[in-house]
Nucleic acid binder design. Structure first.
Lengths: 276, 276
DNA sequence: CAAATTACGTAACATAAGATACAGCGCTCC
DNA sequence: GGAGCGCTGTATCTTATGTTACGTAATTTG
């Protein structure tokens, strides 16, 4: 199978006449830039005439020159976006302002967070979230509740019985009555840890609920009751702590759970689509 | 000293009229590809007319469009040739499981997102959010609303009149009555873009509300009405798109706004503390 | 609130780009 | 060594691209 135009060229370059071969070589030499220029520029660069260039692209299977250019651009777009081949000037002094420290710290937080997180841990948690024996509840603190919402919004699509606990304490406390051993409670709690969440977690724990805790590196007191603890780095040069690392862990988990439920989930998503 | 065209643009984007700013944002969003296409394609991508594109490149100091394209191509050539700094930590063999690809992609997304985002842009947006002339409203789509909540939760602490628009469409539509020129509306909208948000944004725009848009690299149609556009990378090896990059941008902005309001904000935070 | 200025888009224009027809040259094969 | 075939370039044509002029709308300023 031939994907890129460069491959296509090197595949057929053997069967080409001399002039077209020169065109091909010129293009490959500084791929794909020459192909983005005009036919005239291409032709002089290759030392051949314009019609030769046109015959060359025609031989590659393109109807006309613009079509050929579009293909090159699409390919370039894919390259520029995908991390793989990018040249990425992280050393660019360009943005050396106030942005970099924040970004750098965040990136470091993520690396650190994942360094202390094994595949097995994540797989276990994902498995627990994916096994459909009971219900899944999610809740967060003052600043982390949006993370709970974000996760709930995704999980609720691929499986039933996913509930985000919102509103006043009294409201979700009453939901305890519905929780049991087979259920999972996902809690987000970072400094400063919230009393109300601790109380709630304790009671849920007493009822045998499996608790998955997202917290910071200093560990919320809830860790005491949690079956799984994810400790994310939160330090950034800002007045606030960063929840970005936890956010990425959440996304990773969402992805893992989705993969596990692929068969069942795919059908469910189709069903949901048809409901619209 | 200004080397790249991207820098040149972000340097002058503040002094540009609305239409040209849209052109600039569109170009930056997936730099430099849009600039390599024809004027007509560029203009439709940006949602403006061809002459606006030409005025845009003229303002950047180019004599004509081909000259501008040549400059972009030269820049691209330099980038493609230097096999530079890539693969920072891709050599970390530690966790070679299912985690790495997700994390790596996310890290790349962030670098890429910030690469297309200058300090000046962020500073401008932060300044707009910090100037206390009017109210600040935040709203998001199905999966991004938690980001709006997250940002609102922080901003609401350091300044008054910050509102997160939640619940049904009819509810926040009625809030339009309260919005005017001095107000700011922060919208989060990534694929698949939501009709309801577009309608809401258009009406808000008509009322003169300043819109700050967080979207993905393909730009929500709301970009048309936005004063500021932040285009985050969202592609990850998962069934879902990632909002992590936008999340980090949001955190960065929160930090910047906080810094600007330091004097006023610090007092406010003390007052809040004493209320507990 | 009014006037002046600036910005934007529509439409017509000129130019440069890609496409094509045809003739000359070189190469191969008989 | 000659005839046929194929490749290449010159010159011409057509298309569509970039450019410009002008009228209208929006925005700013007094």
């Amino acid at each position: 199978m031939i994907s890129s135009i460069a491959e296509l060229i090197s595949d057929r370059i053997g069967t080409m006449p001399a002039g077209e071969r020169r065109a091909a070589q010129t293009l490959i030499a500084n791929y794909p830039l020459t192909g983005l220029k005009t036919v005239a520029e291409f032709s002089t660069a290759a030392g051949v005439s314009s019609p030769t260039i046109l015959r060359f692209v025609a031989r590659l299977g393109f109807q006309n020159y613009p079509e050929f250019q579009s293909a090159l651009q699409d390919e370039l777009a894919a390259q520029l976006q995908s991390p793989a081949s990018r040249t990425l000037n992280s050393a660019s002094p360009a943005n050396g302002g106030a942005v970099s420290p924040m970004l750098e710290a965040t990136l470091d937080n993520m690396r650190e967070t994942f360094r202390h997180l094994t595949d097995k841990q994540l797989a276990d948690i994902a498995a627990r979230l994916a096994e459909r024996r009971g219900k899944t509840f999610l809740i967060g603190g003052r600043f982390t509740d949006p993370l709970a919402r974000y996760m709930a919004a995704h999980l609720a699509i691929i499986q039933p019985d996913v509930y985000h606990l919102a509103g006043q304490e009294s409201i979700w406390r009453d939901r305890l009555i519905d929780m049991g051993k087979r259920d999972v409670l996902v809690i987000f709690d970072i400094r400063r840890y919230q009393e109300s969440l601790l109380r709630f977690a304790e009671k849920a724990h007493q009822r045998g609920v499996q608790i998955v805790l997202f917290t910071d590196q200093w560990l919320s007191p809830i860790a005491r009751f949690a079956r799984h603890v994810i400790a994310g780095r939160t330090a950034v040069p800002s007045a606030w702590d960063s929840s970005a690392a936890l956010f990425v862990v959440a996304e990773t988990l969402i992805g893992a759970v989705t993969r596990q439920l692929e068969a069942a989930g795919a059908k469910r998503i189709r069903d949901l689509e048809s409901l619209r």
